[in-house]
Design a protein around this nucleic acid. Sequence first.
RNA 1: GCGCCCGUAGCUCAACUGGAUAGAGCAACGGACUUCUAAUCCGUAGGCUGCAGGUUCGAGUCCUGCCGGGCGCGCCA
Length: 544
Amino acid sequence: MLSLRSEIHDKLSESFVKVFRMKPNAFTVEIPPKGFGDYSSNIAMVNAKLLKKSPRAIAQELIDDLKNDEWFEYIEIAGPGFVNLNVSFKIFANVLKETVNGLPYPKIGSDSVQLEYVSANPTGPLTVGHGRQAIIGDVLSRVYKASGYKVTREYYFNDAGKQMKMLGHSLWIRYRELYGKKTDFSEDDYRGTYLIEVAKEFKEKYGDAYVEEWNEKNQKIFIDFARDRMFEWIKKTLKELGVDFDVYFRESSLYEDGTTDEAMKMLRDKGYVYEKDGTTWFAVSKLIPEEDDRVIIRKNGEPTYFFSDIAYMLNKYKRGFKKVYYIWGADHHGYIPRMRAASKALGFPEDFFNVIIHQFVTLKSGEEVVRMSKRQGEFTTLEDLTKKVGRDVTRYFFAMLDPNTHLVFDMKLAESKKMDNPVYYVQYAHARIFSLIEKAKERDIEWDNADFEKLGNTQEKEIAREIAEFPEVITSVVTENKPQKLCNYAYSLAEKFHSYYNANKIVDENNKELSANRIKLCMAVGRTIKEVLSLLGINAPTSM
RNA sequence: GCGCCCGUAGCUCAACUGGAUAGAGCAACGGACUUCUAAUCCGUAGGCUGCAGGUUCGAGUCCUGCCGGGCGCGCCA
């Protein structure tokens, strides 16, 4: 599906070839500031050097060629050499017709891709930071899928390492407390009170059988019990947010099925592995000179997290993904070069390994800033947040900003049911449209044969142009990995609709034909808003 | 010290990746409900885009150097 803008781009390009007998340099078609037409292109300016002519002269020749094209109502030179043009409303009418029948998704790719996100180890509740990651990943997955990709959503977790041991140990301590026996937490233990509940469940199941001793033998019982409970909790939290995964991937499976051995052999065979000081190293510096080499097998014989990650990447590659996306918090950015080096070392294509970094989330309620630390105990969890403000608001707020900017989540704002909350603003537009349709039905307005071409006042044109942007928005979400564009788009469309609604009588018994046309336009708006909200995983209510 | 990210109205953010007069919301002020949902709309006010240079027809956007904030720089994950 071509977008309106890309069709205009093509028309300009063809005209350029026809007039100047050569291909133009890359140029853009944009929506200009108010007063400069529906669309605008820099084609003349960026090709001035190529043609050794002034931009305005180039523009004039193109305009002479295009001015009789039925697409364009008028087309003119402006400023330093912009080509500004107004599109005939007939063209917009076609877009609207199409929209009412189903949103025109651009087909961007068909490859099999994987997105991995959250991937929190099951040692405690998810934080609001995980929430941001979950939503970024979930929304991008939906958009990738909608634009043609085969998408696997994956959650990777460490199910065997030291962290799990500490979790089991912490549970043991809480469990003993239930019998009045005090043991101090060690430094790496999880002292959050949430394990007390788990300890009670444990007690119920096993009685006092394991109170006395913490040893190799009964560790596993505590670890497994705690891990399972934590995972149930995490999954429940994610489910409440509407976040689901196709695969939950256990780190230990890499050791069980031989992937780690295979990865080690590949790296060794290619000469990227060496031994020093009783440890095994991966020669990152051979691939990226300014980076340091990294340990992959410790002195005590245990592999590092990094080594598991290399094996995991190999696993992903062998499963046939053309591209994999890792969504990480900003604290992991230093990890990118060594992973890139690993990707190179294993001989994967340049664009196989991709990272989407998001900055941190700060929670604010009025003036108070809440800091979060998992090990230390008390903090506002993702679950608390979702319960407090609801799924729709939580999702919107996490999707609303560029992943690359620091997110201040204002609880007060999120809880507000008033005009300052953008979620309700967008949803309200949808509800309003639905109620207009109901109203039109009551008044016997028949819109099946409505004719978009009879519309075309300033606001209707603006709305139509906004709707025509849909494929562009989808494309930029996918190519730039920026979910916030969906929010901006939905908001902007809602804004135009609200304004239109206030200035124009939509359902008017005295003018049924006009009403029918307008209702149909509103349906196109409603349809688009609903679609965008669904990509965001947010409800489109029919009444509020 | 080195690396990555960020710095735009009082606050929270846009600005289609180099385009024209930098736009919204909140907060402030003034208007619009006997009329399709006022969770809405219309208007006023608010800016040396952190600072200083540079690149070019053109810079919030690109390059350099500062300043300020966040995050990294483990045989932790």
